[in-house]
Design a binder for these strands. Structure first.
Lengths: 230, 230
DNA sequence: ATCAGTCTGTGCAGCAACGAACATATCGCC
DNA sequence: GGCGATATGTTCGTTGCTGCACAGACTGAT
C-alpha cells in the first residue's frame, strides 16, 4: 500500500505529520458513496490506494465521470472554497484506503496552516484545468482513445503491479457509453497486445503502447498537474 | 450599458466603491484576446456588458468553449488560487466594456478584503460546477439543444433588447462543430419562430420557447449560480 | 455436476454529426 | 451598377455511436 497521499507529502514534514494525525485511515469498497449530491459534506478524503470518481447525472439513467481522484489528489475542494455541498456524487471506483478528515477539523487546519491553503488552492486550479481538458476530450475524441486514457489514469492511481479490477459495464458507465462500445474498443486494445483481461481483471501489458493508443489528453492532464504542483 | 458588475455588486457599498476605484473601465472589441494560454496573467476583468469566452484548443484546428463569462462573473479565478497563468485563452465574444484590474492590485485587494476573498471563492466553486454541467451537456446533448443554450446564455449576458451579433461560423467555432450544423439547427429554431437572424444579427423572438427548446443544462447552470451566490 | 448469475461477444437498423464541395444571397465599396 | 467579401443554404457519401436483441463463456454455490 502507498505510504501516504502525494498531495499531503508536498507539505513540510511537520505539517504533514500534524495533518495525518488529524485524519482517520478508512477502508473503502467499490461503490461506496462518499458524497451524495447536494447533501452536506461531512468529510474530506485523501486517497492512499483507492480511486474516487466524481459523477454527475446526465439524464435519468446515465451518469458521467467528471474527475478521477487517487493518491495524487483530494476529495474536498468545495470546502476549501467555503461551500459545504457539491452537486457531484463521489463513489469509490477502486477499493482501498484513504485518509479521512472531518469537515470541522479540515476548516480548522486550513485556518492554521497557510501552506496547506496554498497547496490546495493550487490543486483546485489543477482540477479546474483538468476538467477543461476532459471536456475537450469528451467532445471530440473517439471511444477507443478515451478508454485508453481512462485505463491509464486508473493504472496510475492504483498501487501496484499493473492489474486491477473493472468490468466493461463499469467502464461504460463512467465513460457514459454503451457497454457494447467498451467491449469492442477493449477488444481492439487486447488484439494489439496492450492489455489483457478476463471477467474484469485487467492487466496492462504495454504501458508505452497504451499511451500511444490514447489521446494527448492523458499526457496533457498529467502536465497540468506537474506544472502547478511539482 | 450595465451600471456595474453583478459579482462586485454583492459586496458592501464601501468595498464595492473601493474596488471599482481600483479598476480601469476598458472598451473591448470582438476577438480581442485578454489572456494568451500559459502566459503571465496581467489583468483580471469584471465584464459590464461584454462577454468573454474561455477556450481550449482541442486539436490543431479547433477550439472549444469552456465557459462564457459576462456581467455575472469575473475572468481571474487562477489568480485567486495563487496561480498566475491559465492554459485557457480568453477572447471577447460580444464587444462592450469591462472593469479591469492589474494583477498586483487584485492581489492586494484580496489580502485586505476578506469579503472579496469569500465571494470569489464561492464564484470559483460555481465555475467548477458549471464546467461539470457543460461537460455533461457536450457529452450527450444534440447540437440543436446546445445551440439554444448558447444563445440563451449570450442573451442573458448582453445588455439590452434581445438582439446581438454573431455569425453561424462563430457559433460553430465555440460549439466546436461544423458551420453547416449550426446553419441547420438555427434554421429549425427560426422556423419555429423562436428567433430571427440575418447575416449575424440575431433577435430572440420567444425566450420562453427557446428555453423549452434547449436542454435542462441551461436552467441547471443558472441554478448553480443562484444557489451559491444569491 | 448443475444451475443461476455474471461477464463478454456479435449482428442489425437507425441517427447525429462529419468532411468536402458547391450554390445562392446579401452587404459595403469603388 | 458591378465586384469582392461575407454569410447562409443544400447535397452526398461516410463514420461513430445508439438501442435492441440474443448468443456464448466463465464462475461460484449448492
Amino acid at each position: 500500500m502507498m505510504q501516504s497521499n502525494r498531495l499531503l507529502s508536498a507539505l513540510s514534514r511537520k505539517d504533514h505529520r500534524h495533518l495525518v494525525a488529524a485524519c482517520d485511515e478508512v477502508d473503502l469498497g467499490v461503490g461506496d458513496s462518499l458524497w451524495e449530491p447536494n447533501e452536506r459534506i461531512r468529510h474530506v478524503y485523501f486517497p492512499l490506494d483507492c480511486t474516487i470518481s466524481q459523477l454527475l447525472p446526465v439524464d435519468s439513467h446515465r451518469i458521467l465521470e467528471m474527475a478521477l481522484i487517487g493518491n495524487e489528489g483530494m476529495l474536498g475542494v468545495p470546502l476549501l472554497l467555503g461551500v459545504n455541498t457539491s452537486m457531484l456524487q463521489a463513489l469509490i471506483q477502486q477499493s482501498g484506503t484513504a485518509l479521512r478528515m472531518k469537515t470541522t477539523s479540515f476548516r480548522r487546519e486550513l485556518e492554521h496552516l497557510p501552506a496547506l491553503r496554498q497547496l490546495l488552492h493550487q490543486y483546485a486550479h489543477v482540477l479546474q484545468e483538468q476538467l477543461a481538458q476532459s471536456m475537450a476530450c469528451i467532445s471530440r475524441h473517439t471511444l477507443d482513445l478515451r478508454l485508453a486514457r481512462l485505463l491509464l489514469m486508473t493504472h496510475d492511481r492504483v498501487a501496484g503491479l499493473g492489474s486491477f479490477h473493472v468490468t466493461h459495464e463499469a467502464l461504460a458507465q463512467t465513460l457514459c457509453v454503451r457497454r457494447v462500445g467498451v467491449t469492442i474498443a477493449a477488444g481492439l486494445l487486447q488484439k494489439r497486445k496492450l492489455l489483457s483481461y478476463s471477467r474484469g481483471d485487467i492487466t496492462i501489458l504495454n504501458r508505452a503502447g497504451l499511451e500511444k493508443a490514447s489521446c494527448r489528453c492523458y499526457q496533457a492532464s498529467n502536465d497540468i498537474y506537474e506544472r502547478v504542483l511539482a
